[in-house]
Design a protein around this nucleic acid. Structure first.
Lengths: 199, 199
DNA sequence: GGATAATACGACCGATCGTACTATTCTAGC
DNA sequence: GCTAGAATAGTACGATCGGTCGTATTATCC
């Protein structure tokens, strides 16, 4: 359908806006203008601002999956896959063609004190993401790449901290050594977990 | 002066609003109503929305200093002081009476793709904060509490990651084990840096 | 105590917000 | 090619945004 094409265009422009302006920064008027559509025409696609926000967040997750998860799955299972995923994870928005930062990371701070449907969807995405990370760590443990008895939740928790710290130092502080800091931190986390072959 | 009282009341209400709603969520109308003041009366105190935002951010930093830095300075210099500061740092907004999360952490993600004066003030605050953290780590190294040769910048970078991950898991995910994760992560970071007396 | 400046008020500005309702244009199936 | 229904445009709405205005009140200082 023609409508699907338009919807894709809207999601594309909306995702770009989301990455720079955050959820509350994406407005129907601006998005309509960016996508060369009337505001009411845009509004007809999503039946409310909330629905648009949710759609954009899922589009962000879809893009992350395509740019981060899928290519990382080419690596051998276990530690190499985990390392490949982390490498693709850090700074993925830029490689996905987004002009701003990670929309989901930003949403974690924008919605932390807001209730409602949007928050629940972000929470679901974040929980799913951490489950994926945990399963990759578990595989590395099962394959003997990481020490048996490794605290999976703790590993994932600290890995998320590395991602967030990288986001802040790279995007806000514009520290050119953000990548290096993240690499060192991840390496230390691996070593602590008994990685046999450090990258 | 009477005006100073009003200004303090405005900053107090504004800081609360800032912690839950973020910079763009604080509006002149709502703040005026919360502080029982007319919008124009409020506007007379700060000459623009930007000036209000900057004043609120400095108020947040002032509050953090009072609730985090000052009490931590009672601890003996070196590692104990660093540990005391981290303990007070995590979750300080609640202990400061704020209903939401850390306004500065939120600003790091809200302003990462926005230029202007407000961003520069947040950047200055953040840089100053990291300098403080670095100096405490340096003291711990100088006093022999941490290994000589400890990478100060890397330590601070990872510590900030712990703070951010704690913020997300405690405030957004509402994970009751956020404190425990942070404690474990900080302990591991200390151990890696050769701490002789783990807490 | 009276001049003066600070402070607060209410009304209002143009712009934009999200959303609703009504045309109009377009497209798909016959 | 016609027509039904989808897709888009148009218009308007009430609310709120940051901000300005003139005016009234209130402190402050000589």
């Amino acid at each position: 359908m023609k409508s699907d094409m338009t919807r894709l265009r809207l999601l594309s422009h909306g995702l770009r806006a989301l990455s720079t302006d955050g959820l509350s920064g994406v407005t129907l008027g601006r998005l309509a203008e960016a996508a060369s559509l009337s505001k009411s025409g845009l509004f007809a696609h999503f039946r409310s601002k909330q629905q648009l926000e949710i759609a954009l967040l899922y589009e962000a997750a879809r893009s992350a999956h395509g740019h981060v998860v899928e290519p990382a799955m080419d690596a051998p299972a276990g530690l190499p896959q985990l390392q490949a995923l982390v490498e693709r994870w850090l700074g993925w928005p830029m490689r996905a063609g987004l002009p701003g930062g990670c929309p989901i990371a930003a949403a974690l701070f924008e919605l932390d004190d807001r209730e409602g449907e949007v928050r629940e969807h972000v929470a679901a995405l974040e929980r799913e993401w951490r489950l994926l990370l945990g399963s990759l760590v578990a595989s590395a443990v099962a394959l003997g790449h990481l020490r048996k008895g490794t605290d999976l939740d703790q590993f994932v928790w600290e890995l998320c901290g590395i991602y967030l710290s990288h986001h802040v130092s790279a995007r806000f502080l514009r520290d050119p050594s953000a990548e290096e800091h993240a690499r060192l931190a991840f390496g230390a986390l691996l070593r602590r977990s008994g990685a046999t072959s450090p990258a």
